[in-house]
């Protein structure tokens, strides 16, 4: 699953059109580099034009450890963060 991610890293997952636009389904971030969801978005947005577009998209939803949360949530080492668009199942 998490390719080469050390235990203290933060695992970041992407789903649906965001996964396709980024050409990436997951990555690991060093937990020392980020403090909360807003800082993860800020860090990832700097990776390129498409990243900028995805991480400034107002419909972007985020889950921490498989629970939907808001941007001000503080991140701990070992957390699993997921970014995805509004859900369309059922």
């Amino acid at each position: 699953m998490a390719t080469g991610a050390a235990k203290q890293d933060i695992r970041v997952l992407f789903f649906a059109q965001f996964r396709e636009q980024l050409g990436c389904d997951q990555l690991a971030l060093a937990s020392t580099d980020v403090t909360d969801i807003a800082s993860i978005k800020h860090t990832l947005a700097k990776r390129g034009d498409m990243w900028q577009q995805v991480f400034t998209n107002s419909s972007l939803l985020v889950a921490v450890n498989q629970q939907m949360v808001q941007d001000n949530i503080v991140i701990k080492p070992g957390d699993e963060i997921a970014f995805f668009p509004p859900v369309t199942g059922g």
């Binding site: 649906a16 059109q17 997921a82 995805f84 668009p85 509004p86 859900v87 369309t88 199942g89 059922g90």
Partner: peptide, 9 residues
Amino acid sequence: LKTEAPFWK
């Protein structure tokens, strides 16, 4: 389910 469960079509 249609607004919270993480499924995408």
